[in-house]
Design a binder for these strands. Structure first.
Lengths: 128, 128
DNA sequence: CCAACTGTCTCACTGTCTGATACAGTAATC
DNA sequence: GATTACTGTATCAGACAGTGAGACAGTTGG
């Protein structure tokens, strides 16, 4: 379902939350879909289930999931209109990504191309 | 010179390093330019100078700065050809930024527009 | 040489990340 | 309705990273 890198320095909880966000944004997981239990997903990923629980909880706080104990976790319809912080956050993330790429020797053209490829994956909204 | 947010949860060292990378990538700081001393920049930012020193060291490890004790810190010419990790890193950062934006309710069109605005700031390469 | 500057190193403190374990809610079954 | 087997939650302990304090070491100019 999702993939993480246990050797990365980035916290596992972060990685799991980020991977789930991508799956949600790409429509790989749609509103109403049930997600695996914390213990099951943890087993698949090879981490402690508590770590998955915390990632779920974080997304629940972002109103992306509905999670209540005893019941299975489900995805919910994402929020309506974009907030100011969403926009400024996007701008900052893009600035940082572009800066690193430029310093890494990637040309502006190629950065633009890679961006378009990435963005295209979010427009499909495939639902099973 | 650069700006950080001391109230953010993100480590100060990270913020400083990221801000410097942006300044370098945008040409605000060019090869050969001298940077402020760790104590001076720290005073400006309101953080401990040791934190600035570590951020400088990190960029030096990325071969973006030359830093030796006793002498002032100078920017260096960034690397030549792009590496594989630079490209995959860019892809991952973009995926994550786009996912968060989509879930935040920002349309694909607007994401594209914001990206173009951001990218444009890196093409200017203004030098003083 | 000396003084004043530079960055580096080591230490202590604090908070976060991770995993272990006990707990509490839900649902199906008897 | 009690039981059982599953859900997620809460709390704690150990490991580790981020931060700041202070001593240290290299460089430069008087």
């Amino acid at each position: 379902m999702i993939r993480i890198d246990v050797t990365s320095a980035r916290p596992l909880e972060d990685q799991i939350a980020a991977a789930l966000r991508q799956a949600l944004a790409q429509g790989e997981i749609g509103p109403g879909d049930e997600l695996p239990s914390v213990r099951q997903l943890a087993g698949d990923l090879g981490v402690h289930w508590n770590t998955v629980a915390r990632a779920y909880r974080r997304l629940a706080d972002e109103r992306l999931l509905i999670v209540r104990r005893g019941r299975s976790v489900v995805a919910r319809e994402p929020s309506g209109q974009p907030s100011r912080v969403a926009r400024t956050g996007l701008r900052e993330q893009l600035n940082e990504a572009i800066a690193a790429a430029v310093l890494g020797g990637i040309s502006s053209d190629e950065i633009g191309r890679i961006f378009q490829e990435a963005l295209a994956r979010f427009g499909e909204r495939r639902r099973s």
